[in-house]
Amino acid sequence: MLLKDFLMKIINGFKWFFSVLGESHRSRVTELTSYEERELENIFILLLMGSFAGIPSPPAFLAVELFPYLEHELRVLEARAKDSSDALAELAGLMDIG
């Protein structure tokens, strides 16, 4: 019984190890796509809010009607605005430089 428990623990440990390994691999694979996706979200919300920043933009009412569903994109925009001075570092990190 004790041996069985012990073996199960070892097996579960291996399972956990490989799942984390797999996950980390997967997240490395999707890193670039995630980056692209985040940039696109940023562009999307920036386009909608452009009239407030002075860039040509769709009529303001379109933004008004879409805002209620854009919480995530607004957060992305805020985060991008905060990191904007360090964009190079992010890119370097993404490409494993340094």
Binding site: T30, S34, E37, I43
Partner: peptide, 21 residues
């Protein structure tokens, strides 16, 4: 134009979902 951008966002999300679950 907005629909096109949104479409590619969703496409990317779909890819990430397929790989990461």
């Amino acid at each position: 134009r907005l629909k096109k951008i949104r479409g590619s966002i969703l496409e990317k999300r779909y890819t990430i979902h397929n790989i990461n679950g």
